[in-house]
Design a protein around this nucleic acid. Sequence first.
DNA 1: GGTTGACGCGCG
DNA 2: AAAGCGCGCGTCAACC
Length: 578
Amino acid sequence: MDEGSPWADAERIALGRAPGGGIVAIVLDRAGERGRRTLTAAELPAWVAEREAEGSTGGRGVRWVWSSTADWYPPLLDAGVRVARCHDLRLCHAILRDAVPAALELRAATHWDGTGVLDAPAQAEALFAVESPAVAGDRDDLREVLVELARQDAALPLASDPGRMRLLLAAESAGALTAAEMRTAGVPWDAQHHRRILEDVLGPRRGGVPEYMARLAGEVREALGDPVLALDSPPRLLRALHAAGILVDSTSKWELRQIDHPAIAPLLEYKRLSRLMTANGWAWLDEWVHEGRFRPVYVPGGVVSGRWASSGGGALQLPRQLREALRADPGWRIVAADVAQLEPRVLAAMARDDRLADAARGRDLYEGIAASGAVATRAEGKMAVLGAMYGATTGDSGRLVPRLRTAYPKAMGLVDAAARSGEDGGVVSTWLGRTSPAPDDAWRGAQARASRPGASSADETRARRIGRDRGRFTRNFVVQGTAAEWALAWMADLRLRLAQFPAVEPDRAAPRSGRAFARRAHLAFFLHDEVLVHAPEEQAEAAAQAVRESAAAAGRLLFGSFPIDFPLDLRIADSADK
DNA sequence: GGTTGACGCGCG
DNA sequence: AAAGCGCGCGTCAACC
């Protein structure tokens, strides 16, 4: 591994708080402590920056070990200091705890479970505790940091594939760095443009409900013969539909879409507008966009599969309708890249399915499947693949899945085996070794009831249903989770490539970004299989090339020489809109 | 009065 | 025609 890589076996420096206050940095090597330095919070950024600079100019590089990137990194970023690598003890603990059953000490360290943010009862308890909570299991306490690191070091060799697990821990930690950096940088957001879109779609706001919404609501009330109907209340709307002779079971749009009635078209349009208004309307702008930046909170590892979640601002649900408002600063560009059919590509590689990899190579995977003759059209190929990964059993999708089983037995064998394992209560793993959760109480209870003597057929039916539910989850887990690992590897590599770009002149800096990012191309947004880079105009082409090279590197890192490619749909534009 | 769950819908 | 995975959020209505 080269020294500049996210995966490098770098020198480790652990950071923690001393009992008396202040921050202690411990330089570690294989034998243990090699040096120690006490710092104030104010001294920390400059000291970290020096160690980073030394590491990048000749040393092996530094991997910072800390309790949680979400706590330690933002202040460094605010001070303009970026780090290349870290080991996030909290995130790595969660992975190792579930993936390495033999790591008994680590599993017993339950105070490392959870986010570390105390809920209200725990806060109250801590407040009245006789013993200082700063000593009792405080994850930032230096001794606790070193002890937990030792537990994790001991757990790693016990993983079923330590080499891959080591990559996963590095990737997860790099993701945490990326998430903090992206929040500091912010998503460049043109509030004026956003307001224009809102007015175009919803109509002018004259005090109350925007004009077009009000008009549509009036049309619905008229058509249903209910002049005071509150459209935003599903129960009341349902009653009004029934009163008008429209006998639907719910007010969801897929059910309404089938109905032929003059109220339906304006109702569906109203719902569409209402959604935009409530989720990403003027109130959202006021709350989440300041000084030209949208700053969502990403939650690395927030999904069991390893995908990120978000908290606040709905970063992972930005409607495509608003992508045009995601707009580069003057003199800057948006480099937008997404991977075509990431999950089935990952599946082909995991299963070492050469035929599926052939179908995917150099083109649209769904087209490739159609061209191979397994299905007739691209649309059928897509249906079949999604059904295979999600566990469809009925409908068009379920009907097509058996064709894939014939054409791609290795890939289908992998997801089918994951589903069987899940149904039976087993756990499954991603490619790098993140494991699915153990069966929950509902699963265990249902199986127990169904297997005891005298179980009713209802018990058995319920147990089968819950078993199949879990099978669909584990089927998808291996693919979704491995795709998330690929994406983490992509970003981990990309952020370091971009960090090497030269700084542009200060007056060309993106003025509203966090200082650490203001002067060169940087990641600005991530959504499962796509990234946006905000780049000075003259760096946009190089950034695009870095995005491509990182994607290729991620594929090699995970899957070695297996011939699967990950083609990108890549655009350089003023906005994120296609 | 504040919390909780269901619903509906946005994203991948 | 929503069959089949994973999320977050706003709303309403039921609940304590």
